[in-house]
């Protein structure tokens, strides 16, 4: 009788193990989708986009400065997107580098809303090519001036189709309302960005930095235009932080080399 009880308890435990395995067996068909959705590639590049009139070499000094301040030296790859969509590579990503810098510049790097929209489409072409080569599915990005607008347009319009997710976005002196300093005038590009805000990922962390050379702006971009970023990101993304930098190197062109901004990039973007 006792012998029978032993086997009964043993059988009960085996039965429990099988029973607890049933949810797993039923869930199995969804497993691949869940794994793919939660999978984060080991490589997560930091993509840098220069503003108008600047080339893919715009951030050479910045990367050198950042590499000098961090323990790990990250490699730098520069990509130029030609007007016909062809890509020209310069530099390389070191094997094993998990956070390489990739600068994406454009052959046509002129100013203007029409060009910015084109540059966003060229950026998407470069992004897909890089994703195919380096097998990453998440990244962080920093855009200076119009580069911030290019990135925002890309995040709203093209990111979802790539299957990748953006972890962090930092815009430096991005003129979300172009050169408009008025609080009442809204440019078509700004309206487009606001209309597309619902397509921004809710997991995104955004930092918008403005330079303050005078009390109204950084000498080129009015502060009011940078401040418009809140209508795009606030109450949509996971967190949105606005920072105003003043002092030395606070004028528009020098902002990427500003020591405070370099520190902000190191502590908030390279995490």
């Amino acid at each position: 009788m006792r012998h029978l009880t032993s086997w009964r308890s043993f059988g009960l435990i085996i039965g429990l193990v099988v029973l607890l395995g049933v949810p797993g067996l039923l869930w199995r068909s969804h497993q691949v989708a869940v794994v793919r959705a939660t999978y984060k590639s080991p490589v997560a590049p930091v993509i840098l986009v220069p503003g108008s009139s600047a080339t893919q070499n715009r951030f050479n000094a910045l990367v050198k400065e950042l590499n000098g301040q961090t323990k790990t030296q990250h490699s730098l790859l520069r990509v130029e997107v030609k007007t016909n969509g062809h890509l020209v590579y310069n530099g390389a990503i070191r094997h094993g580098d998990k956070r390489p810098f990739i600068v994406i510049g454009f052959q046509n790097h002129h100013d203007g809303a029409v060009n910015i929209r084109k540059q966003a489409r060229w950026f998407a072409i470069a992004f897909r090519a890089l994703q195919r080569t380096y097998h990453f599915n998440h990244f962080s990005a920093m855009g200076h001036s119009n580069g911030g607008l290019v990135l925002t347009l890309f995040l709203e319009n093209d990111l979802a189709a790539t299957g990748a997710t953006a972890d962090r976005l930092m815009t430096i002196a991005a003129p979300f309302n172009l050169e408009q300093a008025s609080a009442t005038v809204e440019t078509p590009l700004f309206k487009q960005l606001v209309a597309g805000r619902d397509r921004l990922a809710t997991s995104l962390i955004v930092y918008s930095i403005a330079g303050s050379k005078s009390y109204t702006g950084d000498g080129i971009v009015p502060f009011a235009s940078v401040n418009r970023g809140k209508y795009i990101f606030q109450k949509r993304v996971r967190s949105f932080t606005q920072i105003i930098v003043s002092g030395a190197n606070a004028n528009h062109a020098h902002l990427p080399e500003n020591r405070q901004i370099v520190r902000l990039i190191r502590q908030d973007l390279l995490v």
């Binding site: 032993s6 043993f10 435990i13």
Partner: peptide, 10 residues
């Protein structure tokens, strides 16, 4: 170990 416990008697 748990299974072995329930196989042993006394």
């Amino acid at each position: 170990l748990l299974l072995a416990i329930f196989l042993v008697r006394q």
